[in-house]
Simulated assay, not measured.
Amino acid sequence: MFSIGCHLSVSKGMYRMGQDALSIGATTFQFFTRNPRGGSAREIDPDDFAALRTLMTENGFAPVIAHAPYTLNPCARDERLREFACETMCDDLKRLSLLPDALYNFHPGSHVGQGVQEGIALTAALLRRVLETEPETMILLETMSGRGSEIGGRFEEIRDILDLCGNHPKTGVCLDTCHVWAVGYDIVDRLDDVLETFDKVIGLSRLHAIHLNDSMTPFGSRKDRHAKIGEGTIGMDALVRLVNHPCLRHLPFCLETPNELPGYADEIAMLKARFQSS
């Protein structure tokens, strides 16, 4: 089954997001757990979560993706910022216990001049603390574009964080197509090679979701600029090959393109039309 969705606004509530997803032909979606540029979160409504679970079951949804806010920096130089990240992630995961099959995605962070290895060590240390709370939810490290002092652009950096967490069974990866293209993985002409590299370095069994985006900037730009599907430097044909790849087609795909609901509906219909069901 081809599961594709988009990023929706949690301000409407969980059940309403599920309804919006259905209205545009989606069978998954992504949402921010709280204000993406701040720290405030909606009050938990167990009935709202229960209604969403019922809707998802009745309509064959894939796992939905909860995205941690952008304000978190797990490898910040300032210990107070790292503590804020840890507290926020733990609170998010506690909330997500009401949605047991959800995936929780976060950015590995920026080392802000401390160096890549120190950034990796700090992010892994924070993630180990989060895992000590025994979360029910799978936690995913997102592959990044490598801009500035970001860590997580190279597959080896993601692997090192996972290794330092003992390859905990509740950890995995979300691959972002715009990001990997920007950092220098050629998913247009060498998709099989990229996936082989991912498998050797991390393991395809650790890949649980994909952010499906085109890119406004050229290959290797190290810039995070998402484009609508087929309107960027990756292109429609390459993204169609990706969603049809036998190693990936079973995963939930989530659009993070610059769109509102009607634009997402068009992209979902377009990609479904080119998905090979056999």
Rank of each mutant, 00 (worst) to 15 (best):
L175N: 13
A125N: 03
I139N: 00
T57I: 13
L175A: 11
E256C: 06
L207E: 10
S11R: 06
T257M: 08
S149T: 15
L22Q: 04
V130G: 00
A21L: 03
G148W: 08
C90T: 10
G5P: 04
T143Y: 11
E231I: 05
L122F: 09
K12T: 02
P63E: 03
A238I: 08
H226I: 05
D78K: 10
F32S: 01
S3M: 09
M216H: 14
C75S: 03
T171R: 10
M138D: 00
V188L: 13
E150T: 06
D224Y: 08
H211W: 12
L175K: 12
P63Y: 02
G172Q: 12
N244P: 14
G60E: 06
A265P: 14
F84D: 14
K272H: 14
V188P: 15
P63K: 00
I24Q: 12
R53S: 10
N105F: 08
A269R: 15
P135T: 01
A125K: 01
T137A: 13
G115V: 13
A227W: 15
G148R: 12
I202T: 08
D92P: 02
V130F: 00
G230M: 07
M144H: 03
I229K: 07
M14R: 10
P46A: 07
Y70L: 02
F155V: 05
